[in-house]
């Protein structure tokens, strides 16, 4: 690695570190004014960093918004290339994009195409997914007959039947509530804790320049 390359890496790491620290400290102090009690230096520091942090935050939002636009452009370009290779479905995509855009602009923001096309299609896909899940659940025991499959099927049946409005199924509701509040909630919170820890680790690595993502 040449000297200039190492210098560039160090420079990138310093910039990333400063940006991370400014944003983090500002958001921490700004969101928790009483974090350091009445310490005047903390208030001064929060006031000093408020503007740079807001600017950085908006820059990131702008970059993300620009990324959406680039994504759309890339999608169109990719399908234009596929169209030139004779893929007819790409023509349908490009045509529907142009039609939707024209419809929205020409009819003063009319989004009825969304209501008439995208909403039914996505709802139908969700319904198909439900059908697939039911089919899969019905075949779990057939594919693997063990205690875990049995537990899975029993839990699923309790949750499904307890959601029915009939009074005869009232005893199942206590089981359903326990299942959802204790094991499911605990598992989800454990997952969220894991994600949060991983996010902190990734953030620290990026701030300290350990990750090469922005160093080329």
């Amino acid at each position: 690695m040449g000297f200039l390359q190492r210098l560039g890496s160090a420079f990138s790491a310093i910039i990333a570190f400063l940006v991370g620290v400014i944003t983090l400290v500002s958001l921490l102090l700004g969101g928790n004014p009483g974090l350091f009690g009445d310490l005047p230096q903390a208030a001064d520091l929060a006031a000093l960093l408020a503007l740079p942090a807001a600017v950085l935050l908006r820059l990131v939002a702008l970059v993300i918004a620009l990324g959406v636009l680039i994504g759309i452009a890339n999608l169109l370009l990719t399908h234009a290339q596929r169209l030139m290779r004779g893929r007819a479905l790409s023509a349908a995509l490009l045509g529907s994009f142009a039609l939707t855009l024209f419809w929205y602009v020409a009819r003063a923001g009319d989004t009825s195409l969304l209501e008439a096309v995208q909403l039914p299609i996505e709802s139908s896909l969700a319904a198909l997914l439900c059908l697939t899940l039911v089919g899969g659940a019905a075949r779990v025991i057939a594919k693997r007959a063990d205690i875990w499959s049995l537990l899975f099927v029993l839990s699923l049946l309790i949750v499904l039947l307890a959601s029915l409005p009939w009074a005869e199924l009232e005893p199942l509701r206590a089981w359903r509530d326990w299942l959802l509040r204790v094991p499911v909630s605990a598992g989800t919170r454990a997952l969220l804790l894991g994600i949060a820890l991983a996010t902190v680790v990734a953030g620290v690595r990026i701030a300290l320049g350990q990750d090469r993502a922005y160093r080329g």
């Binding site: 089919g135 019905a138 075949r139 779990v140 025991i141 057939a142 099927v153 049946l157 039947l161």
Partner: peptide, 11 residues
């Protein structure tokens, strides 16, 4: 629920 029960019994 019925489908899952029947499928599980058959399996």
């Amino acid at each position: 629920a019925l489908i899952i029960v029947i499928g599980s019994v058959v399996g």
